[in-house]
Nucleic acid binder design. Structure first.
Length: 414
RNA sequence: CGGGGUGUGGCGCAGUUGGCUAGCGCGCGUCGUUUGGGACGAUGAGGCCGCGAGUUCGAGUCUCGCCACCCCGACCA
């Protein structure tokens, strides 16, 4: 992609009202644009990152047997009435009347709908277990939005729902998802750890939250840095400064962001909505359910919070909007041609390249590149005869010819 | 839900006790000089001062009424 054609410019100044680091950097770098408080548009760079996050999550969902579907955001009151959540969620659900006088709600979550859909296609124990997921927008009329992408009113979320014949089967799959989640966050380049939490409005049974350490976080977690034991500070029996119940190390309290969560729902939804199946003995029985979420925008915001410096964002290898940011600092024609050639070559090698071909000063190119935060920066210039490959993460520099550069990048990508 | 604040070129902001032609920075256009860490000069385009009413010789500025938005706190993924 030639940067001269890229939609979305970097900006030096943005509104002083924007307090969060993630929204500030993402806006300055041209990844997102705020439409309203807690509602963000994604520009080309931002969407590329979102897609990368999405693809990693999708791959891991498929790997544990998930089948992707897409449910509606518009939902009728009737369905929600049956579980009692039309009233329960009234404070955060967008509810309104359409021109026919029907009561409609925008989905805050999809347990009711998925249960209703599955009911139409599930009848026997032979149909179980079943794993369905979607990546779709959720709407929540938060009393107070804040922290940029970390708490929005419209946000993209991956939600997986599982259906089982009994609690035992759910418990086993719960562990599978647990491991898949750890893998997802690892692939995203985030250091996440699972903490025990109460199920909140979703479930009465124990659940887990996947937390990432950052000052921008709204949650507090008691964590043992040695063995990884952790609990949500709200329900933790062990307090900061006390000994870890597993390894006796002193535990500490950290601010964290909840990037994902998993719940055992049991029959909370299958009972009121009558999602039943015929068991081996020919009798009707309630399906046992689980639900598992990850907020994609929140993940994106969390990466920025957890990985940036004074100059800008530092994307992780797998979430960087492009793999390489090629910077043309040349002014004479010969080097200009060299940059063009390298751009074509990298492209042929199958690498995603953002090529800064703009006719502006070198200083602005470097500033912009640091702000945008692509994982690798590749600099072509008159002064330096060799190519300069810079890892944005630690400013580690590698000088060499194109072959050396290519092998370094490819080795890093694996 | 409580508290605080803001609406002025595309963006960020200033605008005094009401006063004359509404400014500054960034960005954008043109020309020239520059080129390894946000270069410089010249020149140009771009405004229903949130909306409505009122006071006044005169309103961005004062009064009243709307509308919209933002930040902080409690709460919540």
């Amino acid at each position: 992609m030639k940067q001269s054609k890229l939609f979305g410019k970097t900006r030096k100044d943005i509104s002083q009202d924007e307090k969060s680091i993630n929204a500030e950097l993402l806006t300055k770098a041209g990844f997102v644009e705020k439409q309203m408080a807690g509602v963000y548009d994604y520009l080309p760079l931002g969407l590329r990152v979102l897609r990368k996050i999405e693809n990693i999550i999708r791959e891991e969902m498929e790997a544990i047997g998930g089948q992707e579907i897409l449910m509606t955001a518009l939902q009728a009151k009737e369905l929600w009435h049956q579980t009692g959540r039309w009233q329960e969620l009234e404070p955060i659900m967008y509810q309104f009347q359409d021109h026919h006088g029907s009561q409609i709600g925008l989905a805050t979550t999809h347990e009711e709908v998925i249960t209703d859909i599955v009911k139409k296609h599930l009848s026997s124990y032979k149909d179980l277990p079943l794993y369905l997921y979607q990546i779709q927008n959720k709407f929540r009329d938060e009393k107070r939005v804040k922290s940029g992408l970390l708490r929005g009113r419209e946000f993209l979320m991956k939600d997986l729902y599982s259906f089982h014949i009994d609690q035992k089967d759910l418990d086993e799959y719960y562990q599978v998802v647990y491991q898949a989640y750890l893998k997802i966050f690892k692939r995203l380049g985030l250091e996440a750890f699972a903490v025990e939490a109460s199920g909140g409005a979703m479930s009465k049974q124990f659940s887990h939250e996947f937390m990432v350490k950052t000052e921008a976080g709204e949650d507090e977690t008691v964590l043992c840095e040695k063995c990884g034991w952790a609990q949500n500070a709200e329900i933790a029996k062990v307090k900061s400064g006390e000994q870890c119940p597993q390894c006796q190390t002193i535990v500490k309290k950290f601010k964290t962001v909840e990037a994902g969560n998993i719940f055992r729902l049991g029959d909370k939804y299958s009972r009121p909505l009558k999602l039943q199946f015929t068991n081996q003995k020919g009798k009707l029985q309630e399906v046992v359910m689980g639900s598992y979420g990850i907020g994609l925008g929140r993940v994106m915001g969390t990466i920025v919070e957890a990985s940036h410096d004074q100059d800008g964002i530092i994307w992780t290898e797998t979430t960087s909007p492009y793999q390489v940011h090629l910077l043309n600092l040349a002014k004479n024609d010969k080097t200009q041609g060299k940059a063009e050639q390298i751009y074509k070559e990298l492209h042929q090698q199958g690498l995603e390249v953002l090529y800064d071909d703009r006719d502006i000063s070198f200083a602005r190119k470097l500033k912009d590149a640091d702000l945008i935060g692509v994982y690798w920066q590749l600099i072509v210039s008159d002064k330096q005869t060799e190519l300069e490959l810079v890892k944005r993460k630690d400013h580690q520099k590698i000088l060499g010819d194109l072959n050396k550069v290519l092998s370094t990048i490819k080795k890093s990508v694996r």
